[in-house]
């Protein structure tokens, strides 16, 4: 598989009260075109910083070292419609555009949607901005997207306001807006963490389907190793800003090389784990 982007020796520090706090320390990895890559870790591991760095969304105060190079060939494949872009001689060093080349889905859909604009218009604006279509064509494409994310009543959904939707439905709309311009890479940063178990499973299924249908590459950021394993081809384990382990999902689950990965797996309380009540021999 060819790479979509290469991350080399990436370090990020945040300035906090005049002190620089490291968030990522010398991360190197390749994101392969078309793969589903999960980034997992606990709080402070740097997983969201990595997602923001890839999307070019780091705050101004962040001190960044290292490189993130994008495959020009991969980016152009997805945007043959943009005539102003010339193929470069060397593969690499192409600057991607957030919204067109990268779709980003955040944890809280309420904060990424405009509360006073109907959801169909919000999606159509993304289409018009990045694909340079007429407003009428943009609206048609937005309606198709609303059908693809399976909102109930797709006909009236176009004119619905975010506050009229449930949390799961809002996240579906946020996903539609994120993929509206046909991005090469979809980044989902804890996109299901605020949702209940049933809605979370539905959103994961939706992401899986859309990524497959559109041939997108997926960067799935999560604190939940079981959820990540259900979706990803490969898993990156981060801790305190360092890359602990990177491997195929099957290898991470069944033959983790690092003690920290094993500890994360053992701490997962699944439906087949030994209940703590039994481990302690306690019962009422």
């Amino acid at each position: 598989m060819t790479a979509l982007l290469w991350i080399r020796d990436l370090s990020v520090r945040y300035r906090h009260d005049g002190v620089e706090v490291p968030a990522l320390k010398g991360i190197s990895l390749d994101v392969k075109a078309g793969e589903r890559l999960a980034i997992i870790g606990e709080s402070g591991s740097g997983k969201s910083t990595l997602a923001l760095a890839v999307a070019g969304l780091l705050a101004r105060g962040a001190v960044i070292a290292g490189t993130i190079e994008w495959s020009a060939r991969q980016l152009q494949e997805s945007h043959s419609v943009t005539p102003e872009r010339q193929p470069s001689a060397v593969d690499g060093n192409q600057t991607p555009l957030l919204g067109r080349d990268i779709g980003f889905v955040f944890q809280d859909p309420s904060s990424s949607l405009d509360p006073v604009m109907p959801v169909g218009r919000q999606i159509a604006e993304v289409v018009r901005t990045h694909l340079k279509l007429s407003w009428r064509d943009s609206c048609t494409k937005a309606k198709t997207l609303l059908e693809r994310i399976r909102l109930p009543h797709p006909d009236s959904a176009f004119h619905t306001y975010p506050h009229q939707l449930s949390g799961g439905q809002k996240q579906r709309v946020a996903i539609a807006a994120a993929i509206a311009a046909g991005p090469k890479l979809l980044i989902a940063d804890e996109a299901t963490s605020a949702l209940d178990t049933i809605v979370q499973a539905e959103i994961v299924a939706l992401i899986r389907r859309l990524v497959a249908e559109d041939g997108m590459t997926l960067l799935f950021i999560s604190h939940d190793i079981a959820l990540a394993a259900a979706l990803a081809d490969r898993i990156v384990v981060l801790r305190h800003g360092e890359l602990i382990e990177l491997g195929e999902t099957d290898q991470i689950l069944n033959a983790p090389r690092h003690a920290y990965t094993r500890a994360l797996l053992d701490a997962h309380l699944g439906l087949d784990a030994e209940p703590l009540l039994d481990r302690r021999g306690a019962s009422a």
């Binding site: 178990t197 049933i198 979370q200 499973a201 539905e202 939940d224 190793i225 079981a226 959820l227 394993a229 259900a230 689950l253 069944n254 797996l265 997962h268 699944g270 439906l271 087949d272």
Partner: peptide
């Protein structure tokens, strides 16, 4: 049934 089915599972060998 829906809650159980939706709970992510770690399928480790």
């Amino acid at each position: 049934k829906a809650l159980v089915a939706a709970t992510p599972r770690l399928t480790r060998n």
